[in-house]
Computed example of a mutant assay.
Amino acid sequence: MFTSHDGLCSIGELAERAGVTVKAVRFYSDNGLLPEAARSAGGHRRYGPEALGRLRLLRSLRTLGLPVREVRRVLGEEEDAAGSVLEGAVAGQLRELGSQLAALRWREAALRLVLECPPGERADRLRLVGSVAAPPSTAALARFWRAWLPPRMPARATAAFLDAAVPQPPDDPEPAQVLAFARLYALVTRPCTGDERPQPEAHKVSGSRGPAVLYAGLAQAYELAGARLRRGHGPFPGEELDSFVDAYASAYGSRDTPGFRSVLAGQLAADPRIDRYWELTAEVISAPGGPPEPTPGSAHDWLCAALHVQTAVAAG
């Protein structure tokens, strides 16, 4: 209780007891978060005993970083609902803080990258990493693949392919990973002249279901081959290759025969490649100094090599 004759206190006394500034009390009052009990004859604010607890709660909510609009929502709810509102507000603040921390970690790695490179390379490195937001967005990479994929790909199949093909930047990157992502971003956003990213002939499947069948089958084959790559196994015919060939055979409406495999091997060998994309992707997602993580590109190469081995043996 306050010791004044009317049981109320001044703004200064309230601020002192709550451990905040008079300016903060005035701000909360002006925004309707801390109602006044009365005004003195001279027009000064007077507060009742309940104001102290409310002010301490306000201070705690603001110390957690909750914006005024969220504080207003928490205080405006009944006691039973206030807990869930507070939980949602804190969860939202945690997500925002996580994004801010990711941006800071990315900027730190980018600054280290510029600082630690030879002086003659700093201008180019600075220009390269400066074009990428912090934290980086993968929207440009997704656009690159959407322009490359068959136009009739169902949305679900497209989303599944993008999940595999678009690398997610690490939350706590090393400078080498920042450089790799910046180079990847530059690769997919540079101006194109003519048809520089043609759809591989082997992927031009007719019909409305063909592309979805092909890419779903390839995703399964790439996953199987990726497990072999992680164990350091060289390319060889097996379940992985059978799954790979079956994806093309099913999409084309053909049978998996030695003749089909021979034709497919020649087609795949002649198709255009985007090796640089997959090399940079592996650098982004792999721990620096550790073994490269498999990508759809490295899995595809492993499977193509296995197919070449098998068809070469059959032809010889």
Rank of each mutant, 00 (worst) to 15 (best):
S250N: 10
D246F: 00
T257H: 02
G217W: 04
Q220F: 03
S206I: 04
A219Q: 08
P211L: 04
A221V: 10
A216I: 00
P258E: 00
Y222R: 15
R197Y: 11
R231P: 07
D242Q: 09
R231Q: 14
D256T: 08
Q199K: 08
A219G: 15
A249H: 02
V205L: 14
Y252P: 00
L224F: 06
S208V: 07
P200G: 06
R231S: 14
R197T: 13
Y248R: 03
A251Q: 00
P211H: 08
Y215C: 08
P237N: 07
R230H: 07
A212K: 02
A251I: 05
G259F: 00
L214K: 04
L224D: 01
Y215V: 10
F236I: 07
A212P: 02
E240S: 15
D246A: 14
L214N: 00
Y252S: 05
R230M: 12
Y222D: 05
L229E: 13
L229T: 05
Y222E: 08
L241A: 10
Q199A: 14
A225P: 04
V213C: 03
D242I: 04
Q220M: 09
G226M: 05
P198F: 11
T193L: 12
Y252N: 09
E201I: 08
R230Y: 06
L224S: 06
D195V: 13
S250L: 09
L241Q: 08
P200V: 13
E201C: 09
S208C: 00
G226K: 00
A227E: 01
Y248T: 02
A251T: 08
S206W: 03
A212F: 05
D195N: 15
L229C: 10
E239F: 01
A202K: 05
